[in-house]
Design a protein around this nucleic acid. Structure first.
Length: 276
DNA sequence: GTTGAGCGTT
C-alpha cells in the first residue's frame, strides 16, 4: 500500500525511486512526504513493513516524477536527521519486483521476472524456506554507482547478512536458554521438548491474536512483549526449585502442576521449596 | 519504552 491509500503502487511508470534508509521505526510515510515533497513532486511514499508484526522495517521508498528532483532530494536530504535518526537517501537499485533499475527509474519493463517466484518474494518466506538463501536471492547488479556504497558494503561484508527481521525473535530465543537443560537428560527429553513447543505455540497465537494495531503510531509495545521469552510467571519458582534441588524433571513437573494450582489458589506467599 | 542491517505494496 502506498502513501496515498490506494492498493498497490500508483502510477510508477517512469518514476524515480529513492531508497531512504535508516529511518526511525516510528517514522511514517506522512512524516516523509512533506519533507521530500519540498524538493519535487513526490509520486508516492512507501514504507515496507513486516508482514507479521506490521512494524516498519526501517526504510522507505520515495518516488519522484522527475529525476532532477530526485537528485536534488538526495543532495538535500541525505544525512538529514529525521525523527532522531540520520537518514540515508539514495537511488533505489531494485524495483518493486526486485528488478535492477537504473538510478531508481521504474519503467514499465517489469512484466514478470523469472528470477523470483511469488512464494519467495516476501521476507517472511526467506528464512523459513532456505537455510541460507533467505536473503535476497535475486542477483544484485554490481553497479553501485551511487554514494554510500562503501559504508553499507562494509556492513554487509561483516558477515552480518543474518539480519533477518526475526532478529528480535532470535534474541529472545537465545536469551531464553535456561540453565535447566544441564540437568539429567534421562527421561527429561519429553519435558524439554514439550516446553518450547508450548511456548512457541502460545507466542504465535498471542501474536496473531494481538495483531490489531491500526496506525503505526498507535503501535502498542505488547507486540514486542509477546515476542519476548515470556516465561510463565508460575514457572519461575519451579525452575528455581529444580535447579537447586536437583530433582528429576518428571517429579518437578508433576509438582509444578500441583504447585501452580496451590500457588494460584493460595496467596502465593509460600516459599516454593517449603516442602523440603 | 524497545531493535538498526538493508531494496518494495491491498
Amino acid at each position: 500500500m502506498s502513501h496515498f491509500g490506494r492498493s498497490g503502487p500508483p502510477d510508477i511508470r517512469d518514476t524515480y525511486s529513492l531508497l531512504v534508509l535508516n529511518i526511525s521505526f516510528r517514522t511514517s510515510a506522512d512524516d516523509l512526504f512533506p519533507l521530500f515533497d519540498r524538493h519535487g513532486k513526490v509520486v508516492d511514499v512507501f514504507i515496507p513493513r513486516d508482514r507479521r508484526t506490521g512494524d516498519s522495517r526501517g526504510f522507505a521508498f520515495v518516488r519522484y516524477k522527475h529525476i532532477e528532483e530526485a537528485e536534488k532530494a538526495i543532495e538535500r536530504l541525505h544525512g538529514r536527521v529525521v525523527d532522531g535518526r540520520e537518514i540515508m537517501v539514495q537511488f533505489a537499485k531494485y524495483g518493486p519486483n526486485a528488478e535492477s533499475i537504473d538510478r531508481g527509474r521504474i519503467s514499465h519493463s517489469q512484466d514478470r521476472s523469472p528470477r523470483r517466484s511469488s512464494c519467495f518474494r516476501h521476507r517472511d518466506n526467506y528464512y523459513r524456506r532456505g537455510s541460507r538463501s533467505r536473503s535476497r536471492s535475486y542477483s544484485r547488479s554490481p553497479s553501485r554507482r551511487s554514494f554510500g556504497g562503501s559504508r553499507r558494503d562494509r556492513h554487509r561484508d561483516r558477515g552480518s547478512y543474518h539480519r533477518s527481521r526475526s532478529r528480535s525473535l532470535n534474541r529472545s530465543l537465545s536469551r531464553s536458554r535456561s540453565p535447566v537443560r544441564k540437568t539429567t537428560r534421562s527421561r527429561s527429553q519429553s519435558f524439554d521438548e514439550d516446553r518450547p513447543r508450548h511456548r512457541s505455540k502460545d507466542r504465535k497465537t498471542s501474536v496473531l491474536a494481538k495483531r490489531d494495531s491500526s496506525s503505526p503510531r498507535d503501535r502498542s509495545p505488547v507486540l514486542h512483549g509477546s515476542l519476548s521469552p515470556a516465561k510463565p510467571k508460575v514457572v519461575s519458582p519451579v525452575q528455581e526449585g529444580m535447579s537447586r534441588g536437583g530433582r528429576t524433571k518428571q517429579q518437578s513437573r508433576s509438582m509444578s502442576h500441583s504447585h501452580s494450582r496451590e500457588l494460584s489458589s493460595r496467596s502465593r506467599s509460600r516459599s516454593p521449596n517449603s516442602d523440603d
